[in-house]
Amino acid sequence: MRRITVPAAVSRVLRDVLSVARSLPNAAYYRLAGANYRYRLVATEKRVRHGSFRSYELYDRHGNDWLLAALLDRCRDGDVVVDVGANTGVYSLSVAAEYPDAIAVAIEPNPEIAATLQANVAASGFEGRIRPLELGLAAESGSLPFYRSSYHELSSFNRFNAERWGARIADTESVRVEPLDSLVDAGEVPPPDHLKIDVEGFGLDVLCGAREVLATHRPFVYVEPHARHEGESDERGEAATDIRDLLVELEYAIIPGEDGWVCVPEGDRE
């Protein structure tokens, strides 16, 4: 009779769990993924075109995002990517895997998720390629209430967005925020070639704090607007038209896609 060791049995159970993770309801997925992060059980390999990275996510939930593909298409070795709303780091990790000489600055205001981001960077051996920053971006320096959602991807400075899809507010805490313009001026963040923004209803504030960067350094912008619907109050999401107006004012051409916009500086880059 074949003897199965404890580590082999645990590994087999984890593989079985991971195989069904894609079909789990949101609440079950986040509980299971949270346990995997909490106990650092297994960091599985995720493929990115010509490279790969490891993370404690149960599977590569955003590996097929249109917006991520657009970023990888335009990025080059030596470029700087500022990943605003990095969450557990899928975009930053993908850039580091595909472009070994690129630099990703992964900005994540949620303290709990910032720790998981750090764990994923370490699991992939990308400490020299990804620079995590635990803060939020906004139009002005200061601090703002941050709403931690039970579905961590929905956590936001916008309460409504943190409660979408049946999620609830797990906690609220004050978090430091800075304009990107100030961080670049101070040398804390290098001037970006690419600026990715997915901040659950706070994108306009991020862009308002990055006007000088956009006007001077002309990065490609990849943004996922979270539009508010007609008749809803200003607290319920953001007006995608306001984001569009700001970018058009700064002479960006907007290319809409499946899950966001690619915004190309007119007359400066191809």
Rank of each mutant, 00 (worst) to 15 (best):
A9P: 10
V10N: 04
V10I: 13
R12K: 12
V13P: 00
L14G: 00
V17I: 14
S23V: 11
L24Y: 00
N26G: 07
A28K: 03
V42K: 05
E45I: 09
S55L: 12
L58V: 01
H62W: 12
L67Q: 14
L68R: 14
A69M: 10
A70K: 14
C75H: 13
V80K: 00
V81I: 15
V81T: 15
V84E: 06
V84C: 09
N87Y: 12
T88W: 09
G89E: 14
S92V: 07
L93R: 01
L93F: 04
D101L: 11
I103L: 15
A104G: 12
A106V: 11
N110G: 10
E112A: 11
I113T: 12
A115Q: 14
G125Q: 04
L133I: 07
A139C: 00
A139T: 02
S141Y: 12
E153L: 02
S156A: 10
R159I: 04
A162S: 11
A162P: 08
A162K: 00
A167H: 04
A167G: 07
R168G: 10
I169Q: 08
V177G: 01
V177R: 08
E178C: 11
P179C: 10
D185P: 09
V189M: 05
H194R: 03
K196Y: 02
D198Q: 05
D198P: 06
G203K: 02
G203W: 01
L207Q: 08
R211G: 03
V213M: 10
V213K: 07
H217Y: 15
F220Q: 08
A227Y: 06
A227N: 15
H229P: 02
H229S: 14
E230K: 03
E230I: 04
E230T: 10
E232N: 02
S233L: 03
D234A: 11
E235P: 12
D242A: 13
E249V: 08
L250M: 07
E251K: 11
E251R: 14
V262Y: 08
V264T: 07
